[in-house]
Design a protein around this nucleic acid. Structure first.
Length: 420
DNA sequence: TCTGGGGTCCTAGGACCC
DNA sequence: TCTGGGGTCCTAGGACCC
């Protein structure tokens, strides 16, 4: 059976989510900012045409955005997450074998769909997703995931294709590949790009035809796989079920600098709450907790970073246990008088719950703690995050992130539902 | 004043084994 | 003159992705 993959990619996803609930923004330049209103992370086509770059800092562009009447939004992840789920659940109707690759992309296995008219099928996906959610998507189809990615890129860049491109004819494909810069390929990042260009491989076409031994030597097995995929040999398969995380991180920059130990401890406690809930959700325990704090990394002269790795006596997923150890460790790395900009925590050496090695005497306590954690998780799930929380998270949250241009939670909060 | 957050995989080198 | 030949495991760092 010939393999065939589709990649469905939401166009300018975060901006598109905002537009669904604010149609006046159609055809106007719009951007969405990262947490803390830091950088531009999603741009409408109009914003792209103004030359706004992905990842550029908002504060440097404020005037420019005003002059050009660009609407900016703080990120609203509960909205985007919910819209994403709606899109994905529709896509699942079009193939039983689907991999949700990111918040705005999914691979669909089309292997064995030979008797379908693939182009019509892809157009139907695009039409239905838009009709049911208001989100515009592009669809690319190829015999490998890497080719499907490229196909989506081609679909987006060429208006005449109307958002759908199926790779069928090698000659036709090559004519496109001759004009696509090599860093558009999935798996070719900044460093690989530099190295390839230095060797005069600057288009996808040249990369596709590069000498495989040379690629393997210079770009390792990963690079070789990419070339093989470009040539139609499928090396990366669909991963239907999300694997359990091997590390769970939670970190945030602060809205304004934090100086007090107590505020840092609050921030760290709330990151632990977030991360340990994820840990419990995947029914795992962590052996290692790492905490870190840092000052403004752009002020190189006064930059301070420190972290502490805590090996827990027993693997756990108990929020209070983590917080107890973290508070202790924080004392070791906290330096008085500094302006902290960010803090974070990481859970690692993650194992499945059932692998616990219970010590003879802790048995009962662990059972109790499990019941408590499950109860708290259930209440928070039902009544909203933060309904029950640990006192060490604090109530005033002086350190909370900036989010001054946030839209409403149109789809996930009763009070925010759109009124007509 | 202001510059995001969360992941995965691979490789090279060292320690250690028989 | 001459100095084996495999392995495994771990870690740090570097690449990539969205």
């Amino acid at each position: 059976m010939n393999k065939l993959f589709a990649l469905v990619d939401c166009n300018n996803f975060f901006v598109s989510c905002e537009r669904v609930f604010n149609p006046k923004l159609e055809n106007k330049p719009v951007v969405v900012l990262s947490n803390n209103d830091g950088c531009i992370i999603s741009r409408s086509n109009e914003a792209k045409s103004l030359g706004l770059k992905m990842g550029s800092p908002f504060f440097k562009l404020k005037d420019f955005l005003k002059q050009n009447e660009v609407t900016a939004f703080s990120s609203n992840y509960s909205l985007y997450g919910d819209m994403s789920q709606r899109v994905m659940s529709i896509l699942a109707k079009f193939s039983s074998n689907i991999e949700i690759y990111s918040i705005d992309e999914a691979f669909l296995d089309f292997s064995g769909f030979d008797y379908y008219n693939i182009k019509n099928y892809a157009r139907e996906i695009k039409r239905i997703v838009f009709q049911w959610t208001g989100i515009p998507v592009s669809v690319g189809v190829g015999t490998t995931k890497t080719l499907a990615k490229i196909a989506t890129h081609i679909a987006k860049k060429n208006d005449i294709l109307k958002g759908v491109f199926i790779i069928k004819d090698e000659k036709e494909l090559n004519s496109f590949l001759k004009d696509i810069p090599v860093n558009e390929v999935w798996g070719i990042g900044k460093q690989f790009n530099k190295k390839l260009i230095a060797n005069n491989i600057n288009t996808v076409f040249k990369l596709k035809n590069a000498e495989q031994q040379w690629i393997k030597k210079n770009f390792g097995i990963v690079g070789l796989r990419t070339i093989k995929e470009l040539n139609g040999l499928s090396c990366i398969s669909i991963e239907r079920v999300a694997r359990n995380k091997k590390g769970i991180t939670s970190s945030r920059s602060f809205g304004k600098p934090v100086t007090e130990y107590e505020d840092l401890r609050q921030a760290i406690s709330s990151y632990i709450t977030t991360a340990s809930r994820k840990l419990r959700k995947q029914k795992s325990l962590a052996n290692i907790l790492t905490i870190y704090i840092l000052t403004n990394r752009f002020d190189k002269e006064h930059f301070y970073y420190n972290h502490k790795v805590i090996k827990l006596p027993l693997p756990t997923n108990n929020t209070s246990t983590f917080i107890t150890f973290a508070s202790e460790a924080l004392r070791n790395i906290y330096v008085d008088g500094l302006k902290y900009k960010k803090a974070g925590i990481m859970l690692s050496e993650i194992i499945p719950e059932e692998h616990t090695q219970l010590s003879l005497f802790d048995n009962v306590d662990i059972k109790k703690s499990n019941i408590l954690m499950t109860t708290i998780d259930n209440i928070n799930e039902k009544m909203g995050t933060g309904t029950i929380k640990s006192a060490s998270e604090g109530f005033d949250k002086k350190w909370k992130m900036k989010s001054e241009m946030r839209s409403r939670e149109f789809t996930t909060c009763w009070d925010d539902i759109l009124e007509v």
